[in-house]
Design a protein around this nucleic acid. Sequence first.
DNA 1: CGATGATTTGACGAGCCTCAAGGTACGTGG
DNA 2: CCACGTACCTTGAGGCTCGTCAAATCATCG
Lengths: 242, 242
Amino acid sequence: MTTDCANCPLRRHDLFKTFSEQDLKSIQKFKVGEIKVDPGTPLLMEGSNSPQLFTALRGMGLRYKTLANGRRQVLNFVFPGDFLGLQSGLMDEMGHSIEATSHMTLCVFNRSELWTFFRNHPDRAFDITWLAAVEEHFLGEAVATLGQRTAFEAISWALVRIFQRGEALGLVTRNSMALPFRQQDLADALGLSLVHTNKTLSKLRDRQLANWADGKLTIYDLELLRSEGQVDDDPLPLRPLM
Amino acid sequence: MTTDCANCPLRRHDLFKTFSEQDLKSIQKFKVGEIKVDPGTPLLMEGSNSPQLFTALRGMGLRYKTLANGRRQVLNFVFPGDFLGLQSGLMDEMGHSIEATSHMTLCVFNRSELWTFFRNHPDRAFDITWLAAVEEHFLGEAVATLGQRTAFEAISWALVRIFQRGEALGLVTRNSMALPFRQQDLADALGLSLVHTNKTLSKLRDRQLANWADGKLTIYDLELLRSEGQVDDDPLPLRPLM
DNA sequence: CGATGATTTGACGAGCCTCAAGGTACGTGG
DNA sequence: CCACGTACCTTGAGGCTCGTCAAATCATCG
């Protein structure tokens, strides 16, 4: 039993652009189903050419690459509203893998219909391009983080970005949100060792800035953390939802 | 005196997709002129909302971000064929700045006409999205480089990527190509200090892998360098030209 | 020719990595 | 119900990669 797009649980959040009736109809037609997956389930594989694209409805996940020497680089955390698989939809293969780290629910689309959708709905095509550009923007920030920030700054940056996204999605209650990742995931995202990540997190705790434990992230002083991480305070832009 | 798109000097390279007659006509109409700039000229500024988009015809440049603490992160080197300013065309501001590091010639487009172009030419719209996806793919690799590769591996990776692009553009003669950047630029691209970059480059020289001096990059053993840098050997995909 | 910018080299120290070990929570099977 | 394995977090010790500081060399240019 799949949800009607008109009743999509994400639409209510003001992080997302509002749909026209036309948009609703066309996206509903593009959508072919819904799936629920368990933590640890791989959704898309680097180098593969998946027949399906997804929109994350509930739950979280990871985008990552694996290098020849076996080391893993996490590119991004996946949140509700993210559109997954665009690379394989456009080019013929994914540049990274994606897997669920919590229980997830996802909308499913057929890659083979992407081009038709693109041609018939130029405004939605524009939205897809916009999503790609936002992703590019984010990765640019990530590159700057890995290249120029210290471990302490990098972790501050990451926690602020995560928390901001959580707030916009209504996942935050009283300064806290669920964050179903391991310290190893954050370490791999920031190019740090697990040990140093652990020690830096405890420094954040000592300084009363933030606490991430037992899958729950609590921010005590967002403004201070923002300045430690040198995060620009642009408001999150309104995202289109696919 | 601007070049006719039909005579675009880039079209001959097999790096680029071939144009249909229709494509030629529509892109020619979108194009509003051509400019030549000197080394050091800023083309687009982070946070700005440029009225113009560009395609690099000749010459090279840099994309970079500046952090609050003044440090600079180079995101990418700009080569002929690159489409510049898409972020400001889609979102309302650039996430990075772009400047010329050599003499450059660029095609100029009006940002205000992007949406019309997008609507009227769905296949070209697809191409634009594809370009955004390729950029995202590249930045993903860059993140992995900064996060997981040693200085030696990172520089090997960068030189291979640059050289491959140069080859596809016909810029390489007898294992060498012009590379009009400073060591500081490469250092800022890889998150390394200038000093360490310099020392690592001389190690590459000692090991007879590559030599970059006086604005000229020479690769002695591309295969070996590729394996040192753990660069995947996917062939460069055919790029659309805007 | 002094001034400026880029490259090069040496010395030293710090930030972060690796290795190692121990702690806790949780599930599984005897 | 307890022994055991597994996964993740935590903490300490030591060392290497890489950053910072400093200064010399070289080329270009007004």
